[in-house]
Amino acid sequence: MSWCTVESDPGVFTELVEKFGVSGVEFCELYSLEDEDFSRVAPVYGLIFLFKWTGESDDRETSEAPAGVFFAKQMVHNACATQAILSVLLNTDLALGETLEELRSFSAELPPDMRGLAIENSEAIRTAHNSFSRPEAFVSAEGPATKDDDVFHFVAFVPRNGRVYELDGLKDGPVDLGPADDWLAVARMAINSRIEKYAASEIKFNLMAIVRDRRLLLDEKAALCASDPDELANVEADRALETAKREQWTQENIRRRHNYVPLVVDFLKVLAANAKLKTLVDNALAAKAATPSANPLSSSS
């Protein structure tokens, strides 16, 4: 039972949770840890932090997941995006739809590793996840990912029962980060310290928030300011932008699932049949030859 890798992208994640049967939420990418970035997208249900996994050692203490906190051990590597998303969703009180409610009740009494297996074995979840498999026209000879490859890891941050938890499926249990009075501030601090740890080595990371569906939020806002035409016009303009964003996500996800290799080959054939390919090849070769670094040995003469 294989799981494909999934691109870390708000459009992908949003469609993914909608396929799980969840509605009323969406993902948005955060580009900084600034206060205003977070208030702009409130309410935030949880955060997912993605970073290049280096097999780091982390000696912070983990606890056994307290009652009401969903923690699952990650059992399959490529499933880590889905794992982190579920770690957030199952720790909220949102209506999650049949598939996830079933998982929640089925796994309530299970230990973390069995919960991980329950996720892995859920046909519905795996099918939704794998619907994003990039069409690989060729089997790559690379084999499984190693430490040298770009292996990314996802960690979830959620407020639950008055505490803030860091949920990392590679650990034995949740890390309790403290009281959740201002949970975003607590989570941001934890994320920040991790970013600082990597700052020197230019490791890529990315932060995603699970938030309320912006369209629903704006619809509610529109209803509230029905008597204020100026404000209403603003809200409606924002609503139109959100609709356009959703449409763009749909189109991008169609492209993500499409195999473009046949187009590439036919492009080459059509260019050849129109006596244009040779020029393109010659230009590409000329450009290569002009680069001095292409030929390190010959420069010695």
Binding site: L268, L277, L280, N283, A284, L285, N295
Partner: peptide, 15 residues
Amino acid sequence: TGALPPPLSLADVLA
């Protein structure tokens, strides 16, 4: 090394 043409990049051809 001097005589061999540099490897061709498909990405350059279809830039």
